[in-house]
Nucleic acid binder design. Structure first.
Length: 678
DNA sequence: GAGCACTGC
């Protein structure tokens, strides 16, 4: 391979002050072999930039009901502020909730804080995430995922247990945090009106949309905390790059030849295939027989990678070797990789774009936002000064949007709206969103809920009894509808399995260079009736070997996803017990499973046209079967699918063969209306 | 004829 050096222009330094935005703190606790004592921890804590600000911060928080706290990397706000409030008795014997967008973060921070306080985890300090509640009535500092607090609010909209809600990482703008903004603001007002104890809100963020946060919370005061981040040189590409993948490889080899060994490189690319191919190319280049290159360990990193292989990025690099990690945006926030000296940022990300008009999801490679670019840059300066190579020009950077569009403005809202209705909020269009979703998206979601029988539109929109039951499940309403429908078909046991497996990423693992072997291994699970029954076969086989890891590996089954599916199944089963649904199995009568699926997915049907091309029943859109489907080679006449994803073509994913008559039986009014409309 | 960013309940 030809290696061409290309020039970078150094224009900026990213320092403790940040340039535009600032990177977020890493929430993963570092793997250390020696446990520090509590005294050592205290010494460490005293050095945090937040420590000298303690008095002033508490005094201000005392006076206001809501505050925005802007804290840069490593300032200690997440771990220290809850402790300050608690020690000062400001929690007034109630609980302080601190939300996080990610589970691992909630868990590891809780572990850290309980260690700092010298208490047993789950007592004064605890956490609560899906499948795991390590807290008790006596817990005063409770770390939780934003989704968990949102779920809790449907049981108690006034959040009476809490005296403080701290929404951390607010700049990430997850759907859950965005809905919580409105929920906690409303709870605060209503508690005041009812004369109940005050609910204080702290919004913690690391961004520039400070004004928007402050304005939304009735001009709440803003506190700035200084961070602790090493300076990072930012170098822009002098020319626009036409092939970012190639440019990334060139940049890596250039750094490899120029920089001392032992300084590791993190490269941001967009997806699994691209990453695997880059990894193989780099490995091929350095193993060149002429031995002109120093040894290099190249690790891929993306969410679908099995855990064992993911862990390789944390192994210390041996002397005289360079480690290169090629990652998706998973390395922006979710995992912190130690010892990164160089970041190579292609400026590209694969993003899901939702079109509310067509209801279609699209996966598209796009430019990142400025805040994302700074986040990537920040990954180079965690332990020492570093360098970030941007494979785009400064002019191109200036064209990037300031922030990533909040998730709530680019996702299907049916689940969110069902939850808001369950919270007793019926006027969704006028709900106090910080950034309102498009009205079309709200209406489309309401239409879907009406079709499912979850919502009635009389004078105002309201939940039906069925809708209330659907809201009890942590699922897409269509999947919940399938579960509730199972009692008519005596197949709840099977539906629980199918729905759980549909709730996780693919259970099939297809490694880059073993595609054929993986496909061959998969054959024994395949059902001619479609993917849902194929999934059921996999689950039965998995349970048959009691979830044996070796078996998973031999059969190219992703053990982690199977385990998650089992946990989800258990959770869903408990909800079904609560709703007194009858647990029955359909045995070999697999047709009822597909019939039952029609009750949630009757809008997602397609009919075969010619040469393997299908047209959707709902909108006559041309679609094809995804190559990962067990029906890819079969082409049945009529199918239902769980989702459409537009990439190079419009693909149907997770399909089952159905009889058109079943569709009609599942939703007669819908199909009658369609007939008249056509 | 051929493929899937990341979270979360």
């Amino acid at each position: 391979m030809l290696i061409v050096a290309f020039l970078f222009r150094e224009t900026r330094m990213m320092s403790t002050k940040g340039v535009l935005g600032s990177p977020k703190p890493a929430k993963r606790v570092k793997l250390t072999s020696v446990e520090p004592t509590r005294d050592e921890l205290l010494e460490e804590r005293k050095k945090l930039p937040i420590f000298p600000a303690k008095g002033k911060l508490l005094q201000n928080v005392q006076q206001v009901s809501t505050a925005i706290i802007i804290g840069e990397t490593g300032c200690g706000k997440t771990t220290q502020i809850p402790q300050f409030l608690y020690k000062a008795g400001m929690h007034r014997n109630h609980t302080i909730a601190i939300t996080q967008p990610r589970r691992v973060a909630a868990i590891s921070i809780a572990e850290r804080v309980s260690k700092e306080m010298g208490t047993e985890l789950g007592q004064t300090v605890g956490y609560c995430v899906r499948f795991e509640d390590v807290s008790c009535q006596a817990t005063k500092i409770r770390f939780m995922t934003d989704g968990m607090l949102l779920r809790e609010s449907t049981l108690d909209p006034l959040l009476k247990r809490y005296s403080f809600v701290i929404l951390d990482e607010a700049h990430e703008r997850t759907v859950h945090t965005d809905v919580l903004f409105g929920v906690v603001k409303g709870a605060q007002k209503r508690r005041r009106a009812k004369g109940l104890p005050q609910l204080k809100i702290l919004v913690m963020s690391a961004t520039m949309d400070v004004d928007q946060f402050s304005q939304y919370f009735d001009c709440a005061p803003v506190f700035y905390l200084e961070g602790r981040q090493y300076p990072i040189q930012v170098k822009y590409s002098v020319q626009s790059q036409s092939d970012y993948l190639f440019s990334a490889l060139v940049a890596v080899m250039q750094i490899h030849q120029e920089a001392p060994l032992g300084q590791d490189i993190l490269v941001f690319l967009t997806g699994q295939e691209e990453i695997e191919s880059a990894v193989h190319t780099l490995r091929d280049i350095v193993k060149d027989v002429t031995k002109q290159y120093a040894p290099m360990i190249v690790c891929p990193m993306y969410a679908a990678l099995p855990t064992g292989q993911q862990m390789r990025i944390f192994q210390p690099t041996p002397g005289g070797v360079r480690k290169v990690i090629v990652a998706t945006n998973i390395a922006e926030t979710s995992v912190t990789i130690p010892n990164i000296k160089f970041v190579v940022d292609t400026g590209m990300v694969k993003a899901k774009i939702f079109n509310p008009n067509s209801g279609l999801d699209m996966l598209k490679v796009c430019w990142v936002s400025k805040s994302q670019a700074w986040q990537r840059t920040g990954r180079a300066g965690r332990e020492a000064p570093g360098t970030c190579y941007r494979l785009y020009t400064e002019e191109e950077f200036e064209q990037f949007s300031t922030n990533t569009i909040p998730e709530i403005q680019r996702c299907n809202l049916s689940s969110v709206i069902l939850q808001l209705l369950a919270l007793g909020i019926s006027d969704i269009v006028h709900f106090d969103f910080m950034d309102k979703p498009r009205p079309e998206a709200i209406l489309a979601a309401l239409d879907q809920l009406v079709l499912l029988g979850a919502v009635e539109k009389q004078e105002k929109v309201q939940l039906t009894l069925l809708g209330r039951q659907l809201a009890a499940f942590p699922l897409d309403p269509r999947l919940s509808r399938v579960l509730l429908g199972a009692k008519e078909f005596d197949c709840l046991e099977e539906m629980l399995t199918v729905v759980s497996l549909l709730s996780v990423e693919s259970v099939f693992h297809t490694p880059y260079n073993k595609r054929d072997t993986a496909h061959a291994a998969r054959q024994k699970f395949i059902s001619s009736e479609g993917d849902h029954l194929t999934l059921l076969n996999v689950y039965r086989a998995y349970k048959g070997v009691k979830g044996d890891k070796q078996w998973c590996q031999e059969n190219f089954i992703n053990a982690r996803n199977m385990q998650t599916a089992s946990q989800i199944r258990k959770q869903l089963r408990e909800i079904c017990v609560h709703l007194q649904l009858p647990f029955k199995s359909c045995g070999q009568n697999t047709g009822v499973i597909r019939k039952c699926l029609c009750h949630g997915f009757f809008t997602n049907a397609a009919e075969l046209q010619h040469e393997g091309v299908y047209k959707t029943v709902a909108s006559k859109k041309t679609v094809v079967i995804h190559p990962s489907s067990s029906l890819f080679m079969r082409k049945p006449g009529c199918v239902i699918y769980n989702e459409l994803v537009q990439t190079s073509k419009c693909y149907m994913r997770n399909l089952s063969v159905v009889d058109p008559q079943w569709l009609y039986e599942a939703a007669p009014t819908y199909f009658k209306r369609k007939k008249t409309a056509n």
